[in-house]
């Protein structure tokens, strides 16, 4: 499989407060030196607690946020050096779906208009062709063509997300960054959207970056998964490998928190409960970012920051004492 997208040493810093505030200007490392590559056709799950920088990384990857450092290579093009204007034609191949469809769809525009927008920007189509394509897309995502004349407020959450997906696939992208596409939805609707995404991936040869905090959803859709903690990737690898034998204690704790439907199995496994809160990314802990909450932390973890290394000859983990 060819590498479709590669992020190298990407960092994103935000400035918090101003010179005049009590604490002065502070730097928040939302994404801290992250490198990952995405192969064509796969689904990379990006998981982590809220505030770990997974959404920020997603937005950096689509250049909705300017990255502070690093390079982004998409489909052979270095997109981190391009100006926003130069980037516009490339965006046809690199689309995004947002968490809250009611916020990411303009409430004053009709659904057909919204879905037709990328076509008007990128495809040289006349009105008739756009209308036809919009009907086709609506059918593809499981809505009816006559929904085109409605407004987003007339739809349910799941239907709205379908509209968001229809808009993202309108111009046949290669990669779609799905930023928590199902977390705002009911569990029953989540399954429908996840199935729709899987169908579309198969039909349209899509590559996904699936950002989520729900491991059970990620497990269903992803081929590979990257676990983020406080702005960095702590473990990355194939989904089966990581679920079978997590190498990083944080991943292990996350996996142990996934509800187990089978009562017999649920009684047998041990739940790892992490103590403490996620430290502030403004003032991260020394050494390993995870050491204050890590059940197996040792002196070395407090001093030296671990880098991603291959473990079990399968996944990579950033831990001095992998499990």
């Amino acid at each position: 499989m060819t590498v479709l997208y590669e992020a190298k040493n990407v960092s994103k810093r935000f400035t918090v407060g101003s010179r005049f505030s009590a604490t002065g200007k502070l730097t928040l490392n939302a994404v801290d030196n992250v490198s990952l590559s995405i192969k064509a056709g796969e689904t990379l799950g990006l998981v982590g607690e809220s505030g770990c920088g997974k959404s920020t990384l997603g937005r950096c990857m689509t250049r909705l946020y300017e990255i502070s450092h690093g390079t982004l290579v998409f489909d052979g093009d270095d997109i981190s050096q391009k100006s926003l204007r130069q980037l516009r034609p490339l965006r046809a191949k690199l689309q995004m779906v947002f968490q809250d469809p009611s916020a990411s769809l303009n409430p004053r525009r009709r659904v057909g208009d919204l879905i037709g927008e990328p076509l008007r920007i990128h495809a040289k189509m006349n009105h008739r062709e756009i209308a036809d394509r919009v009907s086709e897309l609506l059918t593809l995502v499981g809505l009816s063509p006559d929904h085109a004349t409605r407004f987003q407020h007339e739809f349910s959450g799941g239907q709205r997300q379908r509209i968001g997906i229809a808009r993202a696939i309108a111009v046949n992208p290669k990669l779609i960054v799905l930023d928590e596409p199902v977390s705002a939805l009911d569990v029953s609707v989540q399954a429908q959207i996840v199935n729709l995404l899987a169908d579309l991936q198969e039909k349209l040869n899509l590559t996904y970056v699936f950002i989520a905090h729900d491991l059970s959803v990620v497990r269903q859709v992803s081929t590979r998964i990257a676990v983020m903690y406080l702005g960095s990737i702590v473990e990355i690898g194939n989904i089966e490998d990581i679920f079978a034998k997590p190498a990083h204690p944080y991943t292990q704790a996350l996996i142990s928190a996934v509800p187990e439907p089978d009562i017999k199995k649920a009684g047998m496994r041990s739940r790892i409960i992490l103590t403490g809160d996620v430290p502030s990314p403004v003032n991260p802990p020394s050494g390993c970012r995870f050491h204050p909450r890590c059940p197996i932390a040792q002196d070395r973890c407090r001093m030296e920051r671990p880098v991603l290394r291959v473990h079990n000859s399968k996944q990579q983990a950033a831990c001095h004492f992998p499990l």
């Binding site: 516009r88 046809a92 689309q95 995004m96 916020a103 303009n106 927008e117 990128h122 808009r167």
Partner: peptide, 17 residues
């Protein structure tokens, strides 16, 4: 700052659009 403007930027829309 709204998400639908973010989305429009993500679609590749120009500033005037």
């Amino acid at each position: 700052q709204s998400e639908f403007v973010m989305a429009a930027i993500g679609l590749g829309a120009s500033n005037s659009r």
